[in-house]
């Protein structure tokens, strides 16, 4: 690895001033992704600020029934097992349990998970000359390369990488809000605006500023999210990144009419993909397979596949149908 200096931050403001003081500084949380990328020579920070001692590990109810706040340094495993999350947002708990392995979940923080970087081979391995994310202007190796795991929605000709996080998909379905602290104080970023589509700047993955620290994730109160579900489709029985995933919640009225729906897709885009077209398609319809398929078709109408990943279009449709069918079965 590139040599770096290492300091431990006592509190959030010390962390934020530390990062502003020296360029090429990164925060170190669980380190499960950053350390890997440093070993591969993809990330080469000159300084690491260890933030693991900051008091940001709580999962707590927001006053006035406004939802739940998760501290940015809460471990993935602790959040997954937390009763508030299991009861009110099972989709998030399931997403954590589907992600990584138990040991990595014990280390990984939710703040770090938000910033998890793509598993695109061309990004991950500097041996590949082309990657606009790693080396802006160099091109996209995946476009004409091996692109089985790549994006089918929202991609650009600059980048077809996907966001690998399971948690982010659940957060997208739940309309989470990311709380950050910077030199100018605190601000809130809705999850939909947190991650970016690649466009012409795939190297900029989020709207978090380099000198900002994620302090918490707020989950708004969504009563029907108590019946929500995360479906992860992967290449082996366990322990693999999603080729497609679906986070979904359904509210059913009388006669199984859908009154509200939340759907987000993973493994298909540069950011967790909120499936608003599908959601719109569902409202007012009867919850059955035909409705689900129509919603899936609507969402994937704009999808575009490449040499090795066109199967994801049909797989994503089927996954939406399965996730919604599972939720409907839970209701009856």
């Amino acid at each position: 690895m590139n040599p770096f200096t290492y300091i431990k931050a006592r509190d959030a403001s010390q962390a934020v001033s530390g990062i502003a003081a020296k360029p090429q500084t990164k925060f170190l949380g669980g380190g499960t992704n950053l350390i890997d990328l440093m070993k591969m020579g993809v990330e080469t920070p000159a300084q690491l600020i260890d933030i693991t001692r900051l008091p940001l590990t709580q999962v707590e109810e927001l006053p006035g029934g406004k939802g739940v706040r998760i501290g940015a340094l809460a471990r993935n495993s602790d959040v997954a097992e937390h009763s508030l999350i299991q009861q009110r947002y099972p989709v998030l708990s399931q997403a954590f349990l589907a992600g990584a392995s138990p040991q990595l979940r014990n280390m990984a923080t939710v703040g770090g998970n938000l910033l998890q970087r793509t598993r695109c081979y061309y990004f991950y391995d500097p041996a590949f000359p082309k990657c606009n994310k790693r080396n802006p202007g160099s091109g996209c190796g995946a476009l004409e390369g091996y692109n089985r795991i790549h994006a089918i929605l929202g991609q650009s000709d600059q980048c077809i990488a996907t966001n690998p996080s399971d948690m982010n998909v659940a957060l997208a379905a739940l309309d989470a809000v990311v709380r950050v602290q910077g030199p100018k104080g605190e601000r809130e970023i809705p999850i939909a605006d947190f991650h970016r589509l690649p466009g012409s700047t795939p190297n900029i993955e989020t709207n978090l500023q380099p000198d900002e620290l994620i302090t918490a994730i707020d989950l708004p109160a969504i009563p029907f999210a108590a019946r929500s579900h995360y479906l992860k489709v992967r290449d082996r029985a366990s322990y693999a990144f999603a080729i497609v995933s679906v986070a979904a919640a359904l509210e059913l009225g009388a006669d199984r009419k859908i009154t509200a729906a939340r759907i987000a897709l993973g493994g298909v885009a540069h950011k967790p993909w909120r499936a608003q077209k599908a959601e719109k398609e569902l409202i007012g319809k009867t919850a059955d397979e035909k409705t689900f398929r129509a919603a899936a078709e609507a969402e994937l109408a704009a999808a575009k596949g490449y040499k090795h990943n066109s199967f994801k279009i049909e797989l994503a449709k089927r996954s939406i149908v399965r996730a919604l069918s599972t939720l409907t079965a839970m209701a009856s």
Binding site: Y122, D125, G145, Y146, R148
Partner: peptide
Amino acid sequence: SYDPGTGLPVT
């Protein structure tokens, strides 16, 4: 799997 351009393995 191999990258068809460089001949490097990707997986």
